[in-house]
């Protein structure tokens, strides 16, 4: 039983990262209707930035907070400079190609800037101390706490502020947003900025797992799990992203522990689960069936 519980919590610890990246994917999907394939690599770049701050002697928490700010600006710049010019092109595939290009370019750029020749991996200071609190790993609790804080902040921003209302208006009906005087371009920039900041948190959480050693492949598998999580929860639902991320994390962790036949290919269990959910509910667990009366 203790083993089951430990593995369950282990899965939560990993799921927090999937949930965060999925949340970033959902934010961009809702505001722009676009799947951002570069989300993982943007998070990777942010993680390197955070590492750079710690390398300059900053504490890891301060480095994370600073990185969130830097990533916010970076996300906005990426939207304005790389995404906006192709957004109005005839084919929506053009934007997809741009995000795929960013996937490769950002990864290469991060390696070029931050990794010295001959160096294999970098070391991220751990966010939480080793040890246990209330019978659970302190780190797992702390990571779950960060996810909860992220969700609460995002909820308050989207539901309780004027900016959040404007963001949701553009997601709902860009044409009408212009008619009430909102500049949709500015809102898309903010959407990318927020997603980029959430990605920064995800990246630092991913890097500071276990020993804290990480390299440029840090987010590649995470992105696949995050897409799975978002599909499971529903691409238009932030709540779905969080639940989906945690479910995928736990399912993955329990598979590794209990189903030895699938060793090395434990990926199939969460994906099998998702297949079943999507067969029953094509919009995901929390996705909306759009109903409109005319």
């Amino acid at each position: 039983m203790q083993l089951f519980f430990d593995q369950f919590m282990n899965g939560i610890g990993a799921g927090v990262v999937f949930a965060s990246v999925a949340l970033a994917l959902v934010i961009i999907y809702r505001t722009t209707g676009l799947l951002n394939f570069a989300q993982g690599e943007m998070a990777l770049f942010s993680t390197f930035v955070a590492w750079w701050f710690t390398d300059r002697g900053l504490g890891v928490v301060a480095a994370l907070l600073l990185t969130i700010v830097v990533s916010f600006v970076g996300g906005a710049v990426i939207e304005r400079v790389l995404i906006r010019p192709v957004e109005n092109s005839k084919s929506p595939l053009n934007v997809v190609i741009v995000t795929l290009g960013m996937f490769l370019a950002i990864n290469a750029l991060a390696a070029l800037i931050f990794i010295k020749p001959g160096q294999e991996a970098l070391q991220m200071p751990l966010l939480f101390p080793d040890g246990k609190t209330l019978g659970m790993q302190t780190a797992t609790l702390g990571r779950a706490g960060i996810l909860v804080a992220e969700c609460v902040l995002l909820y308050l921003l989207l539901q309780k502020t004027k900016l959040g209302l404007m963001l949701r208006a553009v997601a709902s009906n860009p044409e009408s947003s212009k008619l009430v005087g909102i500049n949709p371009g500015a809102m898309l920039m903010v959407g990318w900025a927020i997603a980029s900041s959430i990605g920064a948190v995800a990246g630092v959480l991913a890097a500071s797992r276990g020993t804290g050693s990480f390299d440029t492949s840090l987010m590649q598998q995470v992105l696949v799990y995050a897409f799975a999580a978002a599909a499971l929860g529903g691409f238009d639902s932030p709540l779905g992203a969080v639940v989906g991320g945690l479910v995928v994390g736990v399912a993955n962790s329990l598979t590794i522990q209990y189903i030895h036949a699938l060793e090395g290919i434990e990926l199939v269990v969460p994906f099998g689960l998702i297949l079943v959910v999507l067969l029953v509910r094509p919009n995901g667990l929390f996705g909306r069936n759009v109903v409109e009366r005319v």
Binding site: M166, A169, S172, N173, S176, V180, G181, I182, R288
Partner: peptide
Amino acid sequence: PQGRGTFGDLTVDENLRLGAI
């Protein structure tokens, strides 16, 4: 606009507040 252009997945209250944004 034609077809009314309401924000279908926002509430009535939010729609009106957007008018005054």
